[in-house]
Simulated assay, not measured.
Amino acid sequence: MFKRIKATETPRVSFSFEGQPIEASTGDTVASALMLSGQTHFRNTPISQSERGPFCMMGVCFECLVEIDGIPNRQACMIPVREGMVVRRQKGAIGVETE
């Protein structure tokens, strides 16, 4: 289980993941907040639909991709939580739009 090393008093924020409310500390990344709440399945792979979750927690591996406020391909380990954000699992490959 993922847990904080040291508990500190920090302001709290609320956001949702897959429609469920999650509470986090200000300064947490989306990935750390989700893992602290017990979530380990962040995305599904494009071919086999295997469940994936954070691996490196420093923006190198791209295993923590999620959709945040309707924008896909966001690295959960690099994005700080903010009040009211809506986070969803990324399902498969999401293409990059070009004009």
Rank of each mutant, 00 (worst) to 15 (best):
M1K: 08
M1L: 11
M1F: 07
F2I: 12
F2V: 15
F2M: 08
F2W: 11
R4V: 13
R4T: 10
K6A: 13
T8S: 10
T10W: 00
P11R: 14
R12Y: 07
S14E: 14
S14N: 15
F15I: 11
F15M: 13
F15K: 06
F15C: 08
S16K: 13
Q20P: 03
P21V: 14
P21W: 01
I22A: 03
E23G: 02
E23V: 14
T29Y: 09
V30T: 10
A31I: 02
A31H: 01
S32V: 14
S32Q: 13
A33T: 06
A33F: 00
L34S: 08
L34I: 11
M35E: 10
M35T: 05
L36W: 02
L36G: 04
S37C: 09
Q39M: 06
H41W: 04
H41L: 06
H41P: 00
R43T: 02
N44F: 03
N44I: 00
T45K: 08
P46E: 04
S48V: 05
S48T: 11
S48H: 12
Q49F: 01
S50D: 13
E51Y: 02
E51H: 09
R52V: 00
R52K: 15
R52G: 00
P54F: 01
P54L: 03
F55M: 13
F55T: 06
C56F: 03
M57K: 03
M57Y: 02
G59H: 10
C61F: 10
C61N: 10
F62T: 14
F62K: 01
E63P: 02
E63R: 03
E63M: 02
C64K: 08
V66N: 01
I68F: 02
D69L: 05
N73K: 07
Q75Y: 01
C77Q: 11
M78T: 12
